[in-house]
């Protein structure tokens, strides 16, 4: 049954990885604007790209 201790540690580290992901997302300002991306994703892709200008990456 001691394997339970190991399993709990593993499950905790998985959870910690998600927490780290959340912290990274907050730090990289992904929660600053929660409206515009929902509109932006519905825009059509550009058919032709002109003059070396680039759309958003």
């Amino acid at each position: 049954m001691e394997v339970l201790l190991l399993l709990i540690i593993i499950s905790l580290s998985v959870a910690l990885a998600f927490l780290a992901g959340f912290i990274w997302a907050v730090r990289s300002r992904q929660f600053d604007d929660d409206y515009t991306p929902s509109v932006r994703m519905l825009f059509d892709e550009d058919e032709e790209e002109n003059s070396g200008a680039q759309p958003f990456k």
Partner: peptide, 20 residues
């Protein structure tokens, strides 16, 4: 506004934060 580069040469990219 996010496709402003097509209208005005010299704009590299533009991004909108609509709520603000």
């Amino acid at each position: 506004i996010e496709h402003f580069y097509k209208l005005v040469p010299g704009v590299i990219q533009s991004r909108v934060d609509f709520t603000k």
